[in-house]
Design a protein around this nucleic acid. Sequence first.
RNA 1: GCCGAAGUGGCGGAAUGGUAGACGCGGCGGACUUAAAAUCCGCUGUCCGCAAGGGCGUGUGAGUUCGAAUCUCACCUUCGGCACCA
Length: 766
Amino acid sequence: MHGHNVFFPIGFDAFGLPAENAAIANGMHPRDWTLANIEGMRRQLRSMGNTFDWSAEIVTSDPDFYRWNQWIFLRLLEQDLAYRRMAPVDWCPRDQVVLAREQVEGPERRCWRCGTQVIKRDLEQWFFRTTAYADELLRYPDITWPAPIRVMQTNWIGRSEGARITFTVAPDGSQPGGDAIEVFTTRADTLFGATFMVLAPEHPLVEKLTHPNQWEEVEAYRDAARHKSEIDRLSADREKTGVSLGSYAINPIDGERIPIWIADYVLLGYGTGAIMAVPAHDERDFEFARRHQLPIRRVVAAPGTEDEQLDGAFIAHTEGERLVDSGSLTGMSAPDGARAITETLRERGLGQSAVTYRLRDWLISRQRAWGTPIPVVYCLGQCGIVPVPDDELPVRLPDDFQLPPQGGNPLETHEGFLHTTCPRCGEAARRETDTMDTFVDSSWYWWRYLSPHKADGPIDRELADRWCPVDQYTGGAEHAVLHLLYSRFFCKALADLDLIAEREPFLRLFNQGQILGEGGLRMSKSRGNVQDPDELVARYGADSVRLFLMFMKPWEADAPWSATGLTGMFRFLNRVWAVTLDAGGTDMPKPAAGAAVSDTGDLRRLAHRTLREVTDDYQGFSFNTLIARLMELTNALTRARGTAAASGADFDEATRLLLLMLAPVAPHITEELWQRRSSAGAEEWQSIHAQPWPAWDPALTAVDEIDLPVQVNGKLRDLVALPPGLPAAEVEQRVMERDKIRAQLAGKELVRVVHVPGRLVNLVVR
RNA sequence: GCCGAAGUGGCGGAAUGGUAGACGCGGCGGACUUAAAAUCCGCUGUCCGCAAGGGCGUGUGAGUUCGAAUCUCACCUUCGGCACCA
């Protein structure tokens, strides 16, 4: 209606565990189960009147789509943005699958799909190197996204600036010394306060650095750490356990010998997996030092507070704080101290400034059959991991796999799929049986919508340049660090592969809310609280249901489903029907006395004002208030029905504008009414959805009379009807003449008159 | 614990410094009808009052302002995110 070309495609994210599990439960191949479901959803979406471009439909489980996942995977592999390595990973014991870090939720570390607590396992897995773009992902140039989403992503990426510092292991009776332990710290200024070191129990240097006398104790601790559950290990209020390795390191700034410990509060996966412990200035180190009687030495203090007793770590930065007890740097401000120490270490080759991120690489392999096969083979000869050549893509999922009754991945036992030959040397080879995380599918699908059948590449560059980035994206906040982060990573990676031009996929993001099940929980089949629109659509019509979904809450808010109020939408549309087709009110009992509308100009003005406001509301996604305004207009027209006013041109224009304004949200009934209006008149019929958006007449939207609120001491006391544009002095004079105001002012002293022209007058009295 | 969002009638919600409660649901009353349904009209925050009118009122308490649901501070509650990140 605004003359833009709009591309509004639809598709089905059809791979994944829910489909696979449901297929198992129903004894079907997941493909058959999925396609049957898609058929149902297509019908349901059409019944709601969604105006998708079905010619561009994508089904991600179709080989024509997933072959390009494989093709992109191979390009990322070439660029070292995809890799395989052994790592401690999150494993969901119920789904029997590994999960990406983003897919493990909450303090109890539960699987995002099934809610089971995950466990850590050391497994060899495939990763995408999202960390390569960590810094760029922190920038959001020229995109209009809700601030909370950006905050969540920023926190998730967790950039922190500091220094890497090398501690050298000291020689002693059992140990020649000389090994380097690298640590990361954000507080280089506290280096003089480092009184011990802590390595993660899994740190590779532990075995080498353990003194023979400590061997047994260290082994026992490492073993316990390995078997401890994730939750136990991560709960922050747990006692800080650890054991000494019996060896020592040299503090690179002052040469002091400090003991080396292992403790499970240091995580292998963050920074370097080792820390310098400064108990005076870090809560965790403080707690650990207290428990194990290690020295606590304060090295930063505000003047005059140096001798205060510490009963906790001193963390907060205070005004004027300076280094104390820090050799030649004593007296320096803390930030200068950090710089000086880092610089000194750099000169000695023992340190440098550094940045660390909380973000981990994206673990994309899944031990399940219903996903995109990862296109590599393991050569049983000499070649190791060999990528499948492009011209052998797609690596197809077999059509006949049997789901093993005991669970697990059927691809591992499918002889036809498993056995192949090495593309490099021709010897026997085994296919990779892991499939890709389904978030891979959703990370680039919108480019594929532009050319879903393109056979010689994933993306039509010319079309992508013309249509992308996506102007308006809609999605839930629950995808903040999942789909929305992965998609930004993909965009940057695909831009570096020169497949697309842009580096951000979605210019404007709107977080629509979710309609929750009764009880306020997310709808899901497993909870059995799914609401099906079919019955409501059959009973009230798609337009009523659509309107109600938009009217019941702000578009961005979550709310539990309740059909209370749906009847209001149905009644509203009935009134629209009545004012459009039966302005004379033949069905009305009889004109209500006193309801006659004499000034049809009022209807005109209301229609034009409504148009102005509704146009604004559409722009701002304020669907609920827009519908309310259309109801007001309809109610005014309803009151004029059956009166002389209803046969006039103003009434006719108002109903015409009403239909046009309503068309985007109630497409079916407005089209029908539009068509009937056209055939009643002489105009040749054209779809209402192809009409230009109407323009309002500024002369009609201008204020013609105001009911000026008059307050006395901020309390509303009167409303004074006035023409607009009256001089301030005259307005005030008229206000003062009002009986009510006189009564209010009687016996009081008028101190001040606040007059906001056109808005109100406030009389301040004493 | 840290970060973020929110708290308004019986219910969903409107109003982002200027008439609190638009619009809808529900409720009450009326018209039409033999009757009911549907439809249409009116009323509906709360307390006092026959009325005119007035008091109170946006989680709680303070503050800024002529004026606060809206801004500031503290607190309470709910929801979402993070979880020893050095």
